[in-house]
Design a protein around this nucleic acid. Structure first.
Length: 272
DNA sequence: GCGACAG
DNA sequence: ATCTTGTCGC
């Protein structure tokens, strides 16, 4: 897979101000509305769900083809970033690639793309199939300039993408997230003053409870999900819940996470 | 000046 | 993200 918009390749040599203006351009090119090439319901791996769906219209009773979903995640060994991408169709993994690239800049909140982008670009460049959806670790529209990692990667390759983060970068929950939320609960995240490119109050993402404990003592924190590209904020929660299978993180992310860890160990050995 | 801040 | 043993709870 090659970038559809080479001009948006994240260059870590840019000045901070140049990185920020590139992000504003990317946000302006991003589509924060549904333009997926598939029906979100087709993500459900359970075949029962398909038969309950509406008629495909071709006279057959077959389920719609399941979309190719790619999980993208990174691991680090000193200043080397290892990016892993795992592509699946339903429960079947159809392709896995990874790449290790030296990082050029430190972690700076809001500029993650410029630190991890090189490795991600290298890994996606090895992919021979084009995913229908990219599940990226980190934020998308929930970002100071609405151009988080998921947005940057999605627009760069012009592929639908969503961002899945374990903590909130910016924005404000519309309802309290304190206490114990049950699985399936979603709470809107709206833009606050820190989101400089959005109208305050605009919906930029959601907190989604993908897992919870039964006991009243301990509780699991929600995930913070947002549109990357070609997906509306209202649709992201169902995409995340549909790809989650009993764990807090979506399955695509868990697969990529585990591959990144393996590749990291190999990189560590090569350097030792 | 102070606080907040994905991975 | 990463460094890490034990430990609490299902």
């Amino acid at each position: 897979m090659e970038p559809a918009r080479p001009e948006f390749v994240p260059d870590p040599a840019l000045s901070r101000g140049e990185m920020e203006s590139l992000q504003r351009e990317i946000a302006a090119e991003a589509t924060f509305a549904d333009d997926l090439g598939f029906d979100p319901a087709a993500l459900r791996s359970d075949p029962e769900q398909h038969r309950l769906g509406e008629d495909v219209g071709d006279g057959s009773d077959s389920a719609p083809a399941q979309p190719l979903v790619a999980g993208v995640d990174q691991a680090f060994v000193d200043d080397v970033a290892v990016s892993a991408v795992v592509v699946s169709r339903g429960d079947e993994v159809v392709e896995r690639v990874h790449a290790a690239v030296e990082t050029e800049i430190p972690y700076i909140p809001g500029l993650l793309s410029f630190r991890e982008g090189g490795a991600i670009l290298a890994a996606l460049g090895e992919l021979r199939r084009t995913p229908d959806l990219l599940v990226v670790d980190g934020s998308g529209r929930i970002h100071f300039r609405e151009a988080g990692l998921a947005t940057h990667v999605g627009v760069l390759f012009d592929v639908p993408a969503i961002g899945v983060a374990k903590s909130l970068l910016c924005g404000r929950p519309r309802e309290s997230l304190d206490g114990k939320l049950s699985v399936g609960t979603t709470v809107g995240i709206e833009a606050d003053d820190s989101v400089e490119t959005a109208t305050p109050g605009a919906l930029i993402g959601h907190a989604v409870q993908t897992r919870q404990y039964d006991s009243p003592k301990r509780h699991v924190n929600p995930l913070y999900v947002s549109p990357g590209h070609r997906v509306g904020a209202e649709t992201v929660p169902e995409l995340v819940l549909a790809t989650t299978a009993g764990y807090k993180l979506p399955e695509p992310t868990r697969l990529a996470d585990s591959d990144a860890d393996e590749a990291k160990a190999a990189v560590r050995d090569d350097r030792a």
